[in-house]
Design a protein around this nucleic acid. Structure first.
Lengths: 99, 99
DNA sequence: AATGCTTACGGGTCACGTAATGATT
DNA sequence: AATCATTACGTGACCCGTAAGCATT
């Protein structure tokens, strides 16, 4: 269970469509399916209800997971982005040297 | 940059010692070094100050990153754990069936 | 038959350990 | 020389795409 899988789940949860989730992440449809399947094994329950082929839906567990995971993932990205920005500022402009 | 790297950084930030961080995660010392080096490339700055061999220290950027990353990572783990718990409850006890 | 998810299969990448090297006390 | 971090190198694992399969409209 790595960050990439979490991003795949979040994309699917928001697109509610394997193909569009794949497009959004520049991945194959198969990869989305593989990852979701693995995550469902990991959690021990289905996250996505594939009843209709027209539009899939999240199970209650999937909805809960999405609600919990999204802000946490966002916070993680922001922490990284902030660090990169600070690093760029330090090395680029500033007082003229690095220490 | 995946979850495992973040965990390695967090362990090192708290242990302030490559060997102990390795023990804590059941990894080799070399792996810690490799991962931290990769992350420093990723962020474009040093995160750890290796001045003294006795005890290493986080750079200011490293401290900031740790402060930001730790709660985000914690939230992520909790989201996963909560989902697993719910899944276990649903399949185990309950009203007697799954739908 | 067209659309869309899944399964099978193969390859390139990389996480990781072991071993060797380097630096500091 | 003992301790601790880094570098070199090889291997097993897994991410991912392509292709084939299966189900629904």
């Amino acid at each position: 269970m790595e960050l990439r899988d979490i991003e795949i789940f979040l994309a699917l949860a928001e697109e509610l469509h394997f193909g569009r989730a794949a497009q959004r992440l520049h991945l194959s449809q198969a990869r989305i399916s593989q990852s979701i399947k693995a995550q469902e094994r990991y959690y021990g329950a289905t996250l996505v209800d594939r009843a209709n082929r027209r539009d899939i839906r999240l199970t209650p567990l999937g909805q809960q997971l999405h609600a919990d995971l999204r802000p946490a993932h966002r916070a993680l990205l922001q922490a990284q982005e902030r660090a990169r920005r600070v690093a760029a500022d330090r090395s680029g402009a500033g007082s003229g040297n690095t220490f």
